[in-house]
Simulated scan of single mutants.
Amino acid sequence: MLDQDEMIKIDAILQKYNYNKSSIIPIMQDIQKDYRYLPEEVLAYAAKHLNVSEAKIYGVATFYENFSLQPKGKYVIKVCDGTACHVRQSGPILEEFRKQLNLTAACPTTEDKMFTVETVSCLGACGLAPVCTVNDHVHASMTPEKARELIKQLKEENADGNQN
């Protein structure tokens, strides 16, 4: 159940798009930006106020890969496993991120919701392979050692309050 503050926040997003159901994708993008995923109760609330079925909203949410129905961490690390990255050993980099954060493919987000590690088919930076992104910031020529250092740096920045 949504509390009053959450309803006000969602109403502001819906109002921004004039409650226009043809704006469902940007509405969902704004919701995901606020929550870092698409919570079930928020989608139900949005569907009701856009006068569309929950099935329609879930259809959009599950069709587009960039939408997530599962909570993600503050830092979303995407490790490229496209051809260029794969042949340049992206696998050990992925495994190092998972090892450092105690994650698996089945459990990609830390319990404290600080980190999520995912693989993607291509990040479009093949000349910089192997690459990963952290919240869409590209890190080129990655190695397992660089992965360890990146996690250490992110943890320090978070402890210092230097990141959002």
Results as ranks from 00 to 15, higher is better:
Val42Met: 12
Pro26Trp: 07
Ala105Asp: 14
Thr104Ser: 15
Leu43His: 06
Lys99Ile: 01
Glu41Arg: 15
Thr133Val: 02
Ala125Trp: 08
Arg88Phe: 06
Ala106Ser: 15
Phe67Gly: 07
Gly127Gln: 14
His49Ile: 02
Leu101Trp: 04
Tyr45Phe: 11
Lys56His: 15
His49Trp: 11
Lys74Ala: 00
Phe67Gln: 11
Arg88Trp: 12
Glu54His: 11
Asp34Phe: 05
Glu118Gly: 05
Leu43Ala: 09
Cys85Thr: 03
Gln32Leu: 10
Cys107Leu: 13
Ala55Lys: 13
Gly73Pro: 00
Lys56Glu: 15
Leu38Arg: 04
Leu101Asn: 01
Val42His: 12
Pro130Arg: 06
Ser22Gln: 14
Val42Ser: 08
Gln100Asn: 07
Arg98Asn: 12
Pro39Glu: 13
Ser90Cys: 09
Val79Ala: 05
Cys132Asp: 00
Ser121Val: 00
Gly73Ala: 07
Lys33Leu: 07
Pro26Lys: 03
Lys113Pro: 01
Ile57Asp: 06
Asn51Thr: 10
Ala47Ile: 11
Val117His: 01
Thr62Pro: 06
Glu40Ala: 14
Glu96His: 05
Glu41Ala: 13
Thr62Ile: 14
Leu101Gly: 03
Arg88Lys: 15
Ile31His: 06
Ser68Met: 09
Val120Gln: 10
Ala61Val: 00
Gln29Ser: 04
Met114Gln: 10
Thr119Cys: 12
Thr119Ser: 13
Gly124Asn: 04
Asn66Gly: 06
Glu54Arg: 13
Pro108Thr: 03
Thr62Glu: 15
Cys132Ile: 02
Leu101Ile: 01
Arg36Ile: 03
Cys85Ile: 00
Ala55His: 12
Asp34Ile: 02
Asn66Pro: 04
Ala106Cys: 11
Ala84Phe: 04
Ala129Phe: 02
Ser90Gly: 08
His86Pro: 08
Lys113Leu: 09
Gln100Ala: 04
Tyr64Gln: 12
Glu111Ser: 08
Asn66Tyr: 14
Val117Tyr: 01
Phe63Cys: 10
Ala55Ser: 15
Ile25Ser: 11
Ser22Leu: 13
Lys74Met: 00
Ser53Tyr: 12
Ala105Tyr: 14
Tyr58Ser: 09
Gly82Phe: 03
Thr62Trp: 14
Ala84His: 11
Glu111Cys: 02
Leu94Ala: 03
Arg36Gln: 11
Ala47Pro: 10
Cys85Val: 03
Val131Ile: 07
Val52Lys: 10
Ala84Asn: 12
Gln70Asn: 15
Ile25Met: 10
Cys80Trp: 00
Leu38Gly: 02
Lys113Ile: 00
Gly91Trp: 00
Val120Ile: 12
Glu118Tyr: 08
Leu128Asp: 11
Gly82Pro: 07
Asn66Ala: 09
His86Lys: 14
Val87His: 14
Gly124Ile: 04
Ala46Asp: 09
Lys74Ser: 03
Ser121Gly: 15
Pro71Phe: 04
Val42Gln: 08
Glu65Phe: 05
Phe115Glu: 01
Asn102Pro: 07
Asn102Thr: 08
Leu128Lys: 07
Lys72Glu: 13
Ala84Leu: 10
Pro108Ala: 03
Asp30Cys: 04
Leu123Val: 00
Gln32Asn: 13
Asp34Gly: 07
Leu103Asn: 03
